[in-house]
């Protein structure tokens, strides 16, 4: 696997196949926990950890996978890493794990992870899969954080709990509600599509 291929595998997840802004998978955490930057960042990091680990392990055992036991093995691997991540959060970032609530265990059924396992890890070598997990994970973290910044800024006047907008600014409560998540996501996807189409015309 040449260097440029690895780079393109990495940027692929970051932008071209960004899970939540382009592929529109992993919507549950994207909508549910982006009401603050800290939540979004932690969720993105936890997902990236699970994604990288599961990609790596699945890629290492891919030659031994039986078609009919494949999903069982995936779930076993993913569930293990999610549980580890959940315990680590509870032990070292207690308040954060409290505010993320049930969404950390729900990473197990995050579509992003299973999709990458099927598309990439089950077919490609460990190095590629590792880089792919890193790229997609970072792309996921990036899009979650972007939504988090917008929603926290307008919904709570702050970013990472530091007040940015003045007191005279009345917070838009809708931004921290689920409806704000849909609105922000829609607008951000629109923006991304605009940027992508402009790039294509220039090219």
């Amino acid at each position: 696997m040449s260097k440029s291929n690895l780079v393109s595998q990495f940027t692929n997840g970051l932008w071209a196949e960004n899970p939540s802004l382009v592929m529109l998978i992993g919507m549950c955490p994207t909508l549910a926990i982006t009401n603050s930057v800290a939540n979004a960042l932690t969720m993105g990091m936890a997902t990236m950890f699970v994604l990288v680990c599961s990609n790596l392990v699945i890629s290492l055992i891919r030659s031994q996978l039986q078609a009919h036991l494949r999903i069982l093995v995936y779930m076993l691997i993913v569930a293990t890493f999610v549980t580890v991540a959940d315990y680590m959060l509870q032990a070292y970032l207690f308040t954060m794990s409290q505010s993320l609530g049930p969404y950390v265990p729900l990473i197990i059924v995050n579509c992003v992870i299973l999709a990458r396992a099927e598309i990439c890890a089950a077919k490609k070598g460990p190095v590629t899969s590792f880089v792919d997990g890193l790229g997609v994970g970072l792309g996921f973290t990036f899009s979650l954080t972007l939504l988090g910044v917008i929603r926290e800024l307008f919904g709570s006047r702050s970013i990472l709990n530091y007040q940015i907008l003045p007191d005279s600014f009345e917070p838009w409560v809708v931004m921290v509600l689920p409806s704000g998540a849909f609105l922000t996501l829609g607008l951000v996807i629109g923006l991304v599509n605009y940027l992508r189409s402009r790039k294509r015309v220039e090219a």
């Binding site: 055992i61 031994q64 996978l65 039986q66 036991l69 069982l72 093995v73 076993l76 691997i77």
Partner: peptide, 10 residues
């Protein structure tokens, strides 16, 4: 032969 992987991973 088919399920050994599941057992080992478990």
């Amino acid at each position: 032969k088919q399920i050994w992987l599941v057992l080992v991973l478990s």
